[in-house]
């Protein structure tokens, strides 16, 4: 399971550290197991911690960021695009 979680999160943890990581992970899950024992029947789920209600914006244009500023903070740019390591084939 720890391998699956690391893969999904795209985290690289060296082999020798995985056992310790797995122990920490198990403790987190134990805490959740405690929560799971609570009787919450009759309670509405909290869907959002936000107190905002139906905050909608009007369909109006706001200025975009300047492209130079946007690409400045990217590790790499080319011809106005973000340049990233080659990834072929969509993942969606």
């Amino acid at each position: 399971m720890i391998d699956q979680a690391l893969r999904l999160a795209r985290l690289h943890v060296p082999e020798q550290e995985r056992a310790g990581f797995a122990r920490d992970f198990a403790r987190v899950l134990e805490s959740f197991a405690l929560l799971r024992e609570l009787d919450v029947s009759g309670l509405e789920p909290l869907r959002t911690p936000s107190t905002r209600v139906d905050s909608l914006r009007d369909d109006r244009l706001e200025p975009a960021l300047e492209r130079e500023r946007l690409l400045e903070i990217a590790p790499q740019a080319q011809d106005g695009f973000f340049a990233v390591p080659k990834t072929i084939g969509g993942e969606r």
Binding site: Q78, F81, F82, A83, P85, T87, G90
Partner: peptide, 12 residues
């Protein structure tokens, strides 16, 4: 993402 313009993938 554009994949056919050089060594990198380009993102718009």
């Amino acid at each position: 993402a554009i994949h056919d313009r050089g060594a990198s993938s380009l993102v718009d």
